[in-house]
Design a protein around this nucleic acid. Structure first.
Lengths: 246, 246
DNA sequence: GGACAGCATTGATATAGATCAAACGGGGGG
DNA sequence: CCCCCCGTTTGATCTATATCAATGCTGTCC
């Protein structure tokens, strides 16, 4: 809490949280806003949280407080079955918006955990609805983000429902590559933030199958994998895996 | 088209389409609107379409025209893989809202087909966004519907990623039962509108596995199945299948 | 009302991936 | 700097479900 005698501290702090000065703004909720609109958005995003690796952001059952935009870092979200089985529902990186699952019932339906040190911006949901009534482009962007999440989930359903282990892994690696590229990182070389078990959970496979399949990709010259470090050597080959008629 | 000399025909027609007089309004988009708000909603829902069994509503790639609310009937939506494999993404019944997948990109990403004669109400999306800026409860209801779709998809991911064939079928039957009950139909007896193959596609199983698993449920006294007609005999037994720690 | 086409059931066999098991290696903490 | 533990790799075997195949039912179209 800054004292009234040190107003500059407040300004600096606001600047640090501002969407208008965030390099991710075009990937995130404020995408497409003009500068006046962006300023109103800035006033909405009041708080920011740091999560150390392993820390949770929210858990299933907790009431919806706000949505969270990832500013940096990497997270997973997972739904838990009554008997303790965990299904990873998604991996999230900078610019992604978390918490959409809680709007329907007012309470979260999945758990989220940081897989590396992560910073998130909190966006109070009631204020977001209010502002989006005034700013059509914000409203539309929120709708687009929710719709894209639905489409992404359909893609995962396709993957889980009708693809082989090799196809699933290929699709997963290409998807990660594309998302890193969209954020300005190398599309061909990156570090996996999740364990083989978490990958397997997301892909509906056991960790041993993930490991074996990665090894086979490596033998075939498609990728180079050394622990969590991945280099995609043959994009065409990976894509071909997905398009073959089997 | 009614002539100016027969204005009552227009009224009757409007009445037929009106949300305010629709028995599904509390399951659908206008849920929670007051009568003044409902009237404005009525003006938005201009057209209605009838689909014969087997007819499509929209296909992947077509531009988003509007959302569609099912008034009566039963539909499936499916995503198609490049190589022709089909993954059924959902089954939809009265009150469900279709087309949310197209908001993100402006074009649909899945195909929808009526599995029995079906009537849908078309809701132009641009007008819906406009009206929902004026009616907070409509805005919130739209958000709730999209959020619930995301949660539903997470449930399917859990099912596809970590459940056995028997668990998938049990979850599927219980879900259908609950949705029929919410619409005032019997929770224990209903007719499946889809083939074994479509069920299998949704559940990530082959049609033979669906058939065998249903037969085994019948032998165990959990259900009675005769072709498409299903009667759930032992709800507790089906639920127990889902909760066992395996 | 009969015949056919599509859907469903059931059986025999094959296989992708799970499970069980053991050894390895690398990064973080002492 | 070394050691230990967690995550990973690899191997051997098992099993749930897919696949291939044949028969049966039923709703519908003429």
């Amino acid at each position: 809490m800054a004292s009234p005698r040190a107003p500059r501290l407040i300004d600096v702090n606001k600047l640090r949280v501002a969407c208008s000065s965030c390099s991710l703004r075009e990937l995130c909720l404020p995408a497409g806003l003009d500068s006046g609109e962006m300023e109103r958005m800035d006033r909405l995003v009041t708080s920011r949280r740091r999560l150390r690796r392993g820390a949770g952001l929210y858990r299933a059952g907790e009431p919806l407080a706000g949505l969270f935009a990832i500013r940096s870092g990497f997270m997973k979200s997972s739904v838990l079955h009554d008997d303790g089985r965990e299904q990873v529902a998604g991996f999230h990186m900078a610019g992604d918006l978390l918490g959409l699952d809680a709007i329907g019932s007012g309470a979260h339906t999945c758990d989220t955990v940081a897989l590396e040190d992560t910073e998130v911006c909190e966006i109070p949901f009631a204020s977001l609805e209010q502002l989006s009534r005034e700013l059509p482009s914000l409203q539309h962007q929120l709708h687009r983000i929710m719709s894209r999440e639905i489409v992404r989930d359909h893609g995962v359903m396709l993957l889980l429902g009708s693809m082989s282990a090799a196809e699933r892994l290929a699709a997963f690696l290409l998807n990660l590559s594309q998302r890193f590229a969209a954020r300005g990182y190398s599309q061909s070389e990156f570090r996996l933030r999740m364990t083989r078990e978490e990958m397997g959970s997301y892909l509906g496979l056991k960790l041993e199958t993930v490991s074996r399949t990665l090894s086979s990709f490596q033998e075939r010259g498609l990728v180079e994998v050394r622990q969590k470090q991945v280099r995609i050597v043959d994009f065409g080959g990976l894509k071909a895996l997905l398009e073959q008629k089997r």
